[in-house]
Design a protein around this nucleic acid. Structure first.
Length: 960
RNA sequence: GCGGCAUUGGCGGAAUUGGUAGACGCGCCAGACUUAGGAUCUGGUAACGAGAGUUGUGUAGGUUCGAGUCCUAUAUGCCGCACCA
């Protein structure tokens, strides 16, 4: 009987569905294991063969773990809110709800065909009110908490209020937007609105005027990880800096814990390093410089040792100090400079790094040398890092150096032997000079000594700074979670938990606007009735305005009816805690029940792309740590082990259109000659150098093993209808190149097509066979026949199966394969287990082994990789249960042992001959046996060996 | 500039602790069976050499009886961060 995958696979999949064998229970005596894929956003293009790579790998692992006796949670869901889904909807002119629904249906259909063992009953969708209920709920908790730096933990805002009532800000060490200072009495006398405004300075989810990345084309603000080189990651539109009133999450408060937590995780070093870079911890000191007017300027430096070389100071243009230190006679110049800076786009700033700046007219006193130094403003100092002000040491900082050269400021070298006539000496090494009491010290010691001095003298204090910024959490978009927030007297208040979810309202026009008016402003029923606790129609039309700032200006004209926040949450809101929801997806009382969370704990294995390193993987860890602080989850980290699967790139094919002949020996037919003149002659890849040619993309789906299907090519597009070809060896060979998989390159391969031609099992095996999981590689269909052939051979082994006792050789093959495949799966090196199967099948075919004793365990081994064929043959063997409930076989060393080993015998490291010796022989006996061997005598020719190295079971090397 | 990863036949890639480099697949060559093959099966396939053999894992050194693997420099490619003080 033939291997008829087209009939087998749908039938097996239907059986799995009907029996519900992939349903997972939270009650089990088995140990648990949680395997998770990063859930996809359902784009309009559907899946291409690159998407399932990680899903196949995790599916293999999940099936393996289940066969090993674990209760395995392996769910799938959809990240359906956010920019990508909405952009697609806008492009196709449909409502995002409709397109999202359609796209999800298509994704599910495609995923089902590949035969994953997901428990679809646990599916989550971020745009489902039952799901985003808990996104809103978590936001509300963040609003109600602040972060205590000493305890490194989130605490209820009510604790903070108590502290204010008794001590004001005295003795407080908390994460805050700006340092505030007030007494208990001052707090008590504050009106309600001011109290609310003050608390906002501390909340973990807070509303503040912040400098944001504003993208006019997308009509929304973006988080730092959504912007790259001044362009939006999504769409590539220009981004500008603007100050807007926005919701933010105080992620920066968790910087140290996010950094420390990395050490406990089984992630790749490169990914941890990327996160460390992003968090950007740097140890240094804050120091006070006083100006002649008496203004105290705080700076941050990691090079406190260079204080004797400070010859000027620089402020960021946005620094609050600027207005304080600018003198009257310099105000005009300063204002002009600030105006110029303000109108530079982020992209201009990045591409054009010439030195610019302006003198403020003021001078500051160096707190150590007491010398007077000028204060400048320049945009090379960033307002968002440190204090937005620096002490400039031109001799030992290249940026300060460039600035000093441009404005002709003094440069004082501080390190012996450093030549600073042409460039600065930035390295943190050498012996100090020109530095008073630091002279003669090494840089490292000088930094240490200077820090002690600063603290002792009260000039400043030792400080750790982080590059990590708070996450901007508002989006002026429609397709996202609404904030559970309404505005009273210009201040935000939470919609009570028992009224959640606050459902996304219908609007006439959901498109974003270039001026930043949120589409929710078009909603007619979007006001909060505080008494009735429900959403009611707006009392009046909304005024125009931008982003969250609009909310403060809204007033209800009826008592107790207030405007609701118009912005929505960003894409990462819904994806930050979805792994928790899978543990208990139908719970409408809690995000996740205590019991479910205690059972599943955390994700044991997480698979996804490394592009989420500084986005989702930071936000998720932050979110989880926050929930952990509140005692809502039992683990501090969400993802114990993480594997980044590589991207699958496209492998494009080319045909070559000939426009002229460049070699002499070419003979064309008249028809070809004519075709060339008319621009419809195509030459095969090997002959293209004989012509002047132009490469043209050919659809990879009409090319097989780089051979063009000429008929299909002519029918592909009207312009190729009358194409003529110059062939080599009777066929047309295409050229190829690795490019991004995209429609415009005609290199997109759809998994459905592969499944139609070869079956899902071949697709799964081939994707694994393609190369190491974590590496990027092009999709190259050329090898798929080999894998398919393997499955056919495997299938035919089951013809005429017998219950005969297996021979030693057959058992050796089996146990060798068990050992290899088990090792490979545990090390995620699936690409090498496919060859192990091929070797085994070849060996068994050669031994003509059709024995149940061998083939049944082989089937179990193969089932994670090719579940359909395994399930089908399992049933043919007479099993009633699914193969997923079989037991993973264990290898026994005794079957692998061979009686003798072929020892390669080397002389001075050069291989000479092999000597078969009993496997169990001791090292000394091997040595003796080799020395008594006739051939050894020939090579030593009477000389006494100096040393003999025997590696048991491996090699003998004789040093002469 | 800082950091991470890679580099092995015609191609994708094996080589788990330093121990016979090139597994396995593709492609190619030869053969078998076939009216036929883009089906199936068998054998061959790193380079040079008639052969014994020699040379071979980006390049140059080093450690070692022995290096794709460890160390030092260097080149090329990919990725991340970047006026971060």
């Amino acid at each position: 009987m033939d291997y008829n995958f087209l009939e087998i696979e749908p039938r097996i999949q239907k059986q799995w569905d009907e029996k519900g064998i992939y349903k997972v229970s939270n009650q089990s005596d088995k140990p648990k294991y949680y395997v998770l894929d990063m859930f996809p956003y359902p784009s309009g293009a559907g899946l291409h063969v690159g998407h399932p790579l990680g899903y196949i790998a995790s599916d293999i692992y999940a099936r393996y773990k289940r066969l090993c006796g674990f209760n395995v949670l392996h769910p799938m869901g959809f990240d359906a809110y956010g920019l990508p889904a909405e952009q697609y909807a806008i492009q196709t002119g449909q409502h995002p709800e409709i397109t999202t629904e359609k796209n999800i249906a298509r994704y599910i259909e495609q995923l089902r065909k590949i035969g994953f063992c997901y428990d679809w009953d646990r599916q989550v969708r971020t745009c489902d009110p039952k799901y985003y209920h808990w996104t809103q709920w978590a936001f509300a908790r963040m609003f109600e908490h602040y972060f205590d730096n000493r305890q490194q933990k989130a605490l209820p805002i009510s604790d903070l209020v108590k502290h204010f009532e008794t001590q004001g800000t005295e003795g407080l060490d908390v994460a805050q937007t700006e340092p505030l200072s007030f007494s208990a009495d001052e707090w008590k006398q504050m009106p309600e609105k001011q109290k609310q405004a003050t608390l906002m300075n501390y909340r973990i989810a807070y509303l503040a005027d912040t400098k944001v990345n504003w993208c006019p084309k997308l009509g929304t603000v973006l988080a730092n990880d959504e912007v790259s080189e001044g362009l939006s990651v999504r769409g590539g539109y220009p981004v500008e800096q603007r100050v807007m009133r926005q919701w933010s999450l105080r992620v920066s408060a968790y910087a140290q814990r996010l950094l420390d937590g990395l050490d406990t995780l089984q992630w790749t070093d490169s990914l941890k390093e990327t996160q460390r870079n992003w968090i950007g911890r740097s140890e240094g000191a804050e120091m006070m410089f006083q100006t002649s007017q008496g203004v105290r300027l705080k700076i941050f430096t990691t090079r406190a040792d260079t204080i004797f070389g400070v010859t000027f100071m620089v402020l960021a243009p946005e620094s609050e100090y600027v207005s304080l230190v600018t003198t009257e006679d310099h105000r005009k110049e300063v204002d002009e400079y600030l105006d110029w800076v303000k109108h530079r786009t982020e992209r201009e700033r990045i591409s054009d790094r010439k030195v610019t700046g302006v003198f403020t007219g003021s001078y500051a006193i160096n707190p150590v040398t007491h010398k007077e130094i000028p204060i400048y403003i320049s945009d090379y100092v960033l307002s968002g890092y440190g204090t937005g002000a620096i002490m400039a040491v031109p001799a030992h900082d290249s940026r300060d150096y460039a600035f000093a050269k441009h404005f002709n400021l003094p440069i004082i070298p501080l390190i012996e032997g450093a030549d600073v006539s042409e460039q600065s000496f930035d390295a943190k090494e050498g012996t100090m000079m020109n530095s008073g009491f630091l002279n003669g010290l090494q840089v490292k010691d000088a930094i240490k000594k200077m820090k002690e001095y600063i603290e002792a003298e009260g000039i400043g204090k030792v400080k750790v700074n982080y590059r990590l910024r708070d996450a901007i959490f508002s989006r002026q978009r429609y397709w996202g979670e609404p904030f559970p927030v309404y505005y009273k007297d210009g201040m935000p208040y939470l919609i009570p938990d028992h009224c959640l979810p606050l459902e996304l309202p219908e609007v006439k026009d959901f498109k974003p606007t270039e001026d930043g008016r949120p589409p929710l402003g078009n909603a007619t029923c979007w006001a909060w009735d505080e008494k009735q606790e429900k959403v009611v129609p707006n009392p009046q039309p909304l005024p125009k305005g931008q982003g969250s700032s609009i909310n403060s200006s809204l007033e209800g004209d009826r008592e107790g009816i207030y405007p609701i926040e118009l912005c929505t949450m960003p894409g990462f809101a819904g994806s930050s805690a979805y792994y928790l929801r899978y543990m208990d997806p139908h719970n409408d009382k809690e995000l996740v029940s205590r019991q479910a969370n205690e059972y599943w704990q955390q994700v044991d294995l997480y698979l996804g792309g490394s592009e989420h390193a500084t986005g989702h993987l930071i936000y998720s860890r932050f979110w989880n740590k926050f929930l952990f602080d509140l005692g809502l989850v039992v683990k501090d980290e969400p993802f114990r082990q993480l594997i980044n699967q590589g991207m699958i790139q496209g492998r494009s094919n080319f045909v070559y259109r000939a426009t002229a002949i460049v070699a002499d020996e070419v003979n064309l037919t008249t028809a070809q000659e004519k075709a060339m003149q008319e621009g419809r002659l195509y030459v095969s890849q090997g002959l293209k150098d004989k012509f002047q040619t132009q490469p043209i993309h050919a659809d990879v789906n009409i090319v097989s093993n780089d051979v063009l299907d000429i008929q299909k090519f002519c029918a592909w597009m009207p312009e190729y209808k009358d194409a003529e070809f110059v062939l080599e060896d009777g066929v047309y060979k295409c050229g190829w190149a690795v490019e991004k998989m995209s429609k415009s390159m005609f290199n997109v391969v759809n998994p459905d097509d592969v499944i139609k031609n070869y079956g899902a099992d071949t697709l799964r095996l081939y994707e694994m066979f393609l190369g190491p999981l974590e590496m990027s590689k092009p999709w190259d269909t050329n090898g798929i026949d080999g894998v398919h052939r393997f499955l056919k051979r495997f299938w035919s082994l089951f013809d005429g199966i017998t219950d005969e006792e297996a021979t030693k050789d057959e058992l050796r093959t089996l146990h060798k394969t068990i050992k290899k495949v088990t090792y490979d799966i545990e090390h995620f090196s699936f690409n090498t287990s496919v060859p192990a199967f091929m070797i085994a099948v070849n060996e068994l075919a050669q031994l003509k082994c059709h024995k149940r004793q061998v083939l049944e365990p082989m089937l179990v081994l193969l089932s994670p990789f090719a579940p359909h064929i395994a399930e089908e043959l399992w049933q043919q063997l007479g099993h009633k249960d699914s193969i997923i409930d079989a037991a993973w076989p264990k290898h026994e060393e005794k079957y692998l042992e061979e009686d003798s080993v072929n020892y390669p015998v080397q002389f001075n490291g050069k291989m000479r001959f092999t000597l078969p010796l009993p496997k169990t022989m001791s090292k000394e006996d091997v040595e003796k046996a080799v020395l008594q061997n006739e051939q050894t005598l020939k090579y030593t020719q009477g000389a006494t060996p100096k040393r003999i190295i025997v590696v048991p079971g491996k090699i003998v090397n004789i040093v002469l």
